[in-house]
């Protein structure tokens, strides 16, 4: 299990409160090591951080039907840092 029960329950509770359409959706969880993006930093004339970062991504997805019967996949991504703290939540437009 990538994320412990306590953190997962907290994340699910927040998602259910703020994004009720994803309330009963079970997320897919992935972890990722983010390499220092030195090329991007250089191109923007910013000092590049050297450390690697570990992040976790929770993907909540469901398909909804619009008023004209079109199907849209609704996706919600929750990004967590190394300590399972939420960095951001975004959803598909």
């Amino acid at each position: 299990m990538l994320i412990d029960r306590e953190h997962m329950d907290r994340i699910k509770k927040r998602v259910a409160e703020e994004y009720p359409e994803f309330k009963d959706v079970e997320p897919e969880i992935t972890s990722k090591e983010v390499e220092p993006q030195s090329g991007v930093f250089e191109k923007l004339n910013l000092g590049a951080p050297k450390q690697f970062r570990n992040i976790y991504r929770l993907k909540f997805a469901r398909v909804v039907k619009t008023a004209d019967e079109s199907l849209i996949e609704r996706i919600l991504f929750v990004t967590l840092d190394e300590n399972f703290e939420i960095i951001k939540i975004v959803e598909s437009r």
């Binding site: 983010v34 220092p36 993006q37 991007v40 930093f41 923007l44 910013l46 951080p49 970062r53 992040i55 991504r57 991504f77 990004t79 960095i87 951001k88 975004v90």
Partner: peptide, 15 residues
């Protein structure tokens, strides 16, 4: 946008 994301999190994530 890229500068802001780098300042906020230190990296550009997938989205």
């Amino acid at each position: 946008f890229a500068r802001k994301a780098l300042r906020r999190h230190g990296f550009l994530d997938d989205d």
